[in-house]
Design a protein around this nucleic acid. Structure first.
Lengths: 340, 340
DNA sequence: TCAAGTTTGAGGTACGTACCTCACGGCTTC
DNA sequence: GAAGCCGTGAGGTACGTACCTCAAACTTGA
């Protein structure tokens, strides 16, 4: 049987109340006594039973997920994953609320964060922007001892915030390596598609992609970035124009959303298969594109993993429990048609 | 506040004892009354608090992991991951024992499984072989209501057993696609390395790899498989002989262990970089090989994920709790130098 | 209609921890 | 040596569920 507080008290030669005071860092215990208790804890290998503790504490984890509204299918996927966890979370004394904020509206995001009541919120997971108002709002949460994890987009790391998501520079480098390897000795131009170069994610992916192409594949040349605001319609229009303007295009890299537009253009193009196409995020559409050979590879991050990881990190911070090393690293996943 | 059994009793107009009898499927309740209680449960959205239940039940999860001894670095990794989980499992009323069995010794494996005392073992995760004696031992466990998951090697699925691991045919197909894509238009021969073709994993990977090469890359030709018993020394010897015998080798696929031998041969070979090399399992050695460009891609399965997934599945079966859909699928991961 | 059986209710204890109150002893301080 | 404070002990209740007992109420069949 595992040792309990009772055993610790007996072993230390003190009362149960004293052990309790030590365990929960309550005042009124001399240093010598604290040491005695801690020695006993170590000797017995006592470990606090978290379930029992939470039961006694009436601890309920109440987490808020703050995510951008509408927007792209990745965010929809993220929301779906949160909902999925929500269904099973009641059994674990966990309550999850989702707050949706207009995309890229930093003021609204900050306001939503400020509106979270510290008494009814034990942790926050947020798809943050880099804006100062948002960072300030997050800092205020930290001051209230509310743990925060930032999801998906890696804002410059602040104290007390954990980032859950992929390294987008590395993701871009991965895309670059795939593109270069798949093209082999072929030479020519590469089309770059992005949502907007004010998005940190897209800037970083571009940086990584460029690094690899420039240093290892000098027979390949990247065309200027086509920005589409992640809108499939705009993608279609501008991509068509670009394909018409250049005859020696061998590859296309879409570092943003708007894959549907890309797919439409390529399937319409009878000679579509001559290009190597690398894009981000596995969705219903990109999955089909891989299947039909329209796309060659997809770089993916697992939204479900991110959601669950965020929850584990928040809980661990609240319970003051260590995390399992490997579990919280979000992988840069590569999908071909064969490993979906 | 979440509803409790008390609330359910009040809502159903019965006593607490009756609700308890219904919840725990104890006899002595009329069907009408059961229906009343179940209606109340549905109406209130009552969900049993698992922590409290386990506390009351004095439930301790006692899991046994049965894995092959010694052998390759993947199994060592697996063991390390189990140990890692073990450290944090005490706080969750979970006890984990590891039993190591001589590799491929089905009799010893079956004996170990039979020696597990149903009273002190609430679930088993096992790297099984296909042997009848093993399958029978597993069937006996199931008869004792001990949930079983089979790890890593996909023995023909039996009732009551869940498989945690990758689809090795798909993994082979993925390797084939990578090989084909990386080679582009180049033509020539491909070296195939395997531990032993009596291992189901390796047979399946070979099947998948062949499928893709034959159907999509007819300029490539697979040489007969070189079996190495997963021994680096044998790999070195036979691979050297093979490389000397053929001048038009363009690719190497190692579907088994023994990567160290492969790496040694290739780094010694000054013209080593001319081959496209695809292998399995990310380890210290293969990681370095990716870094130096000796290897081009690694197909990987996450041992940590498999261990944790196995535990979640066993717990869910014991608690009769549903699982989270996406979490328990082990990915066929692809690693290049850039996304490690 | 009565005995035998079945179903239900009331109430208890237990699990391991958190947190509360009250009292007692020893110590310092004026 | 009395007042005040600090450290400690004793004992309690609570959390939500499991599981037990005993008696009361109900149903059933002859």
């Amino acid at each position: 049987m595992r040792p309990t507080v009772q055993d610790v008290a007996r072993q230390a030669g003190v009362s149960l109340a004293t052990v309790d005071r030590v365990l929960n860092r309550r005042p009124g215990v001399r240093k010598v006594t604290i040491a005695k208790v801690e020695t006993a804890i170590a000797a017995l290998g006592y470990i606090r039973d978290i379930s029992a503790a939470n039961l006694a504490k009436q601890q309920a984890y109440r987490f808020a997920f703050v995510i951008p509204d509408g927007s792209n299918s990745f965010m929809h996927g993220l929301e779906a994953e949160i909902e999925a966890v929500k269904l099973h979370s009641a059994a674990n004394r966990t309550e999850i609320s989702i707050y949706k904020v207009p995309t890229f509206d930093s003021l609204a995001l900050a306001a939503t964060l400020d509106r979270l009541d510290p008494r009814h919120c034990s942790g926050v997971a947020v798809v943050a922007t880099e804006d100062v108002v948002v960072q300030d709002a997050l800092a205020r949460l930290c001051q209230n001892n509310i743990p925060v994890v930032t999801l998906v987009s890696d804002t410059p790391a602040r104290q007390g915030q954990t980032y859950v998501g992929i390294d987008n520079v590395a993701a871009g480098r991965t895309a670059g390596r795939l593109m270069g390897s798949f093209l082999g000795a072929r030479s020519g131009k590469i089309v770059l598609l992005a949502g907007s170069m004010v998005l940190r994610d897209h800037v970083e992916r571009h940086m990584g992609f460029d690094q690899v192409i420039i240093s290892d594949y000098n027979q390949l040349q990247c065309l200027p970035i086509i920005e589409s605001m992640d809108d499939s319609g705009i993608v279609k229009q501008r991509l068509r124009r670009c394909l018409a303007a250049h005859t020696d295009i061998v590859g296309i890299y879409n570092m943003g959303a708007g894959n549907r537009g890309l797919i439409e253009v390529l399937s319409a193009d009878s000679a579509g298969n001559k290009h190597v196409v690398v894009a981000h995020e596995l969705t219903e559409h990109t999955r089909r594109a891989l299947n039909t050979g329209t796309f060659d590879a997809i770089i993916h991050q697992d939204a479900g993993h991110e959601v669950r990881s965020a929850l584990r990190i928040l809980k661990a911070q609240i319970d003051k429990t260590p995390l399992l090393a490997g579990q919280e690293t979000i992988r840069i996943e590569i999908y071909l048609n064969e490993n979906m």
